[in-house]
Each structure stands twice: as C-alpha cells, then as structure tokens.
Amino acid sequence: MKKGKITITITIGLVILILTAVIFLQFKTINQTDITALENMREDELRTEISNFKQKIAEISGQLDETNAKISEYQEAIASNEQASDLLVQELDQQNNIIGKNAVKGSGVVITLTDTRAQKITAEDLRELVNELKIDGAEAISINGQRIVYDSYIVDIGNTFIRINGVESIVSPYVVKAIGDPTYLESGLSKKQYGYIDSKLEEGKDVTLTRQDNIVIEKYNGDLNMEYAN
C-alpha cells in the first residue's frame, strides 16, 4: 500500500471521528437540556412567554380591581349599618327617656308638700298634682325620688304612709319634681283661686313651688314588663 493512501485513510478516519464526536455531543446536549427552562428558551419563545404573562397580569389586575370595588362596597355597607345601629341606639335612648328607664335632666319645677298639724297630705293630693303636672306638659315626674311611669299608682297606706309604684312607702315632706316648660308648669299650678296651689293652701296644706334649671330625675328602678299585652 502506498504511503500517501495510508495518510489519507488515517486523516479521513480522524475527520469522521471528530465529526461524529461533535454530532453525538450535540445530540446529548440537546437531549439533556431542559428546553422549557427560561435560560434556554429562544428569543421568540421568550417573547410569547412575556406576552402571555402580560395578558395574565392584565387579567389578574382586572380581577384585583373588581375585588377592590367589592371590598369598598362592603365597607360602605358596613358604614351604613353602623349608621343604622347608631340611629337605633339613639332611638332606644329616647324611648328609655320616655318610659322612664333613664335618668333625665332638665329645667322644671319642684313642688314640696309638707304635712301640717291641721292637715295631712293624702295620696289624692299627690294624684291630683301629678295629673295637673301632666296637663301642663310635664315630661318626667318623680315623687321623693320615685319616677312616675306608665303603670305608677299612688295610694294611702293607713294614715301614715303613701305608697308609690307598689314598693315605696314615703312620708312627708313630699318633693315632687317635674321636668317641662317651667313657665307653663308654674302658671298651670298657680292659677288664682282654682289653681292647685291656691286650693291646697286654702285647705290648709303647705305647698311650695320653686323653679329650677337643672333638675335630675332618677330612673325607674322596678321592672317594666308586660305579660298579657303584646
């Protein structure tokens, strides 16, 4: 065999060796590389990925906006609920003032009835006074600290006590506090001759009336329950 031919054979063999080595190396690299990894993606693939992500971001931010809108709606609802409950509390407070479950304060008159030697103050006198005060627009009345409520009653117990609201037995002097327009109350009670004060004085009972600005009337201490009415 010629020397030249051997060289050619060896050279070609080497060249083919290099070529196949590189080809297999390439096969192996392509096989083993994770094409989906971000670093290995081609530019156009990355582009589509980016646009996908942008779309997703747009969708999600849309959802976020919706959710935020809902949240603010709910917050408004909560706020209006709070307003409503505030109103309810206010209303309850007013109703309690009216029915006597709250201590109330205001201007009005204080009438003091005292037993004299000649005449004792009777339950009838007090009932009459309460009635008179109501006619003259009294909003809250108490006798010796006992609030007059819708079911209050005033009765004599023997000759010594007067009972109010079924529990309290009181004696002279009787201090009747009434909150209302002081002018109306006073003028209503002190009508000449036929007025309450004049007629009682005439009977020989001791009645005094004073106007006061800051009368405090305690709340009713008993239960306000209805069993049959509903």
Binding site: M1, K5, I8, T9, I10, I12, G13, L14, V15, I16, L17, I18, L19, T20, A21, V22, I23, F24, L25, Q26, F27, K28, T29, I30, Q32, T33, E39, N40
Partner: peptide, 28 residues
C-alpha cells in the same frame, strides 16, 4: 480501506461524543 477507517471513526467518535461533558445550551 477508507470504508474501514470511516466505520472505525464513526464508532470511536460516538463513544467519545457521548462521554464528553455537556456544553452550554447557548453555544449549541
């Protein structure tokens, strides 16, 4: 003769190529 060289080259090349370390995907 040349055919034998080609076959041997292919076989050796395949073995060497499989055993070489991976190259970076960027350069593939």
């Amino acid at each position: 003769m040349i055919a034998i060289a080609i076959v041997i080259g292919c076989a050796l090349g395949a073995i060497i190529g499989i055993n070489l370390p991976n190259i970076s995907y960027t350069y593939s």
